[in-house]
């Protein structure tokens, strides 16, 4: 971690140092010591709320949905497995941006044709899109994790009378979760970054706010640089949280028989 902070600091010094000598940088747009700069910074950083809220809710929904989709995928029943395959293949083939447009502009039309007056605002439109789009990947991670648990675990659970759900809840999922924590964290980071697409439907998250300041200040380099660091901070925090969780759950312990 120390090395990462140092790296950040070095990059900041480098870019900051450039401003005075070459004149190509104009950090004044976000200089907290000036009133205008401070207002800009507050506006930009204010996007954290929406980005974090979007990502967190979408990630939780994606995990629940992914688990739900993974379950038929590990079934002995061909029909259930087919449902899983179709969902995964179909959903993961859709690029995020078209899907976002479809949900935000298209879904309300479908609701309307069904006689329902359901409006989807940018916030929930983005969450639904992120959650569904990511759930196909989460489902595959869950499926792989569950299938990686030795068959003997299920058999042992059966011989002490546990039913399917108890076996999943107490025996298989706790072990699978430890193994899939790293790829799940990857997906969470992916969601945080993909939440930037919410800017195109008007969601006032980090990227949208950066765009708005760029339009008024004509300083894309500085503002997008700051934007990148905003995402970097979020991702580093997630990385740390996950490492902590891994240690707590003992994910790095190899699981025996």
């Amino acid at each position: 971690m120390k090395s990462r902070i140092l790296l950040l600091f070095a990059i900041f010094l480098f870019t900051h140092g450039c401003s005075s000598s070459s004149g190509t940088w104009g950090w004044y747009v976000i200089d907290p010591s000036t009133k205008a700069g401070w207002i800009n910074i507050k506006f930009l950083i204010g996007g954290f709320y929406a980005t974090i809220a979007l990502s967190l809710i979408a990630a939780v929904l994606s995990i629940l949905l992914g688990l739900l989709v993974a379950m038929p995928g590990i079934s002995d029943n061909k029909f259930l497995r087919a449902i899983n395959r179709i969902y995964v293949e179909f959903v993961r083939a859709i690029p995020l941006l078209p899907m976002l447009f479809w949900v935000f502009y298209g879904l309300p039309v479908i609701f309307k044709s069904m006689g329902l007056n359901i409006q989807i605002d940018a916030f929930w439109g983005a969450i639904i899109t992120l959650a569904i789009s990511d759930s196909a990947f989460t489902a595959e991670i869950f499926r792989a994790g569950i299938q990686s648990i030795a068959r003997g675990q299920t058999e042992a659970a059966q011989t002490i009378g546990l039913n399917y759900f108890q076996t999943m809840r107490y025996v298989i999922l706790p072990q699978a979760l430890r193994r899939i924590l790293p790829p799940l964290a990857n997906q969470f980071i992916y969601i945080v970054k993909m939440s930037a697409f919410a800017s195109v439907i008007g969601m006032q998250e980090l990227t949208r706010r950066a765009n708005e300041i760029v339009v008024t200040e004509y300083r894309p380099l500085e503002i997008y640089t700051l934007l990148i660091f905003e995402y970097l901070i979020l991702v580093i925090i997630i990385s740390f949280g996950v490492r902590w969780l891994e240690r707590k759950l003992g994910s790095n312990e190899s699981a025996g028989g």
């Binding site: 042992a156 011989t159 002490i160 009378g161 039913n163 072990q175 003992g250 025996g256």
Partner: peptide, 22 residues
């Protein structure tokens, strides 16, 4: 076989122990 009480009346010990490692 789905009956938990029936299954619990037949204890089984496996070659690979199959204890729950977590």
């Amino acid at each position: 076989k789905q009956n938990a009480l029936f299954r619990s009346k037949i204890g089984m010990v496996f070659q690979q122990f199959n204890l729950f490692p977590h």
